[in-house]
Amino acid sequence: MYRIKTKRTLTPNVKLFEVEAPDIARKAKPGQFVILRVHEKGERIPITIADADADGGAVTIVFAKVGKTSLLLGELEEGEEILDFLGPLGNPIDVEDYGTILLVGGGVMVGALYYQARALREAGNEVVAVVGARSSDHLIYVDEMKDVSDELHVATDDGSEGYEGLDFLRDLLSERKFDRVFTIGPTSLQKEVSEMTRPYGIPTTVNLFPVMVDGMGMCGACRVTVGGETKFACVDGPDFDGHKVDFDELISRMRYYNPQEKIAMVLCEGEGS
């Protein structure tokens, strides 16, 4: 069992936990994820690690309510325990001094972007970061991101704060030279960013989170076509060269269980009310 040391509500739909998991905290690196389960009949879901405090023995996760498991997870309170918490899984991103880098994160994954940004900046990079969300009230981690970037841009889908949409990135990419791009967030955003950087040939690292079950290479549910080859996001990734990923296939595969997820969610919310 893994105790929740701290719980914070970042937006009505997004929560942050610091979870007591000293062994994982010692080993975790940016880009890796955990698999967790909240009850005996529960499913295993992957969540990207948003920070790890080796001294404090805690791993930070930031998650949104998107299905039954994340709903139940979000209902846990400080001091309560998560049943299963496995990690750190997947490969970390390559943290080195690239020069000037552009980081683009969206939605709940900005938490994980922060973890990457801090490490990349400590490695000597000049960090230009973009954080996005649906609207201003869904933005998270803006202040934290300011602390670990040399330049921060905010964008929202509806323009309620910062730029409206990601179109401004085209100008940024044409005006400035970036040595490397990292993006994390909704798959559609990662696809869009990869398409924007492609003409400039800037190496672009994406961080994918397809459907997973075991998260350790056993099931193959998370297979992704990268450069014409089938890769497992859990053990070969989750970071990949965004210019080689077949995003349309990935987006299609990610929707496979939508009907079942809706059933589970409706039943679960029904019980709660």
Partner: peptide
């Protein structure tokens, strides 16, 4: 794995689906 380990044959009592 879905069927045996996660007991998807008892979905939605168990959370893991299978189609």
């Amino acid at each position: 794995i879905r069927t045996n380990l996660m007991k998807a044959y008892r979905f939605p009592e168990y959370d893991t689906p299978i189609t």
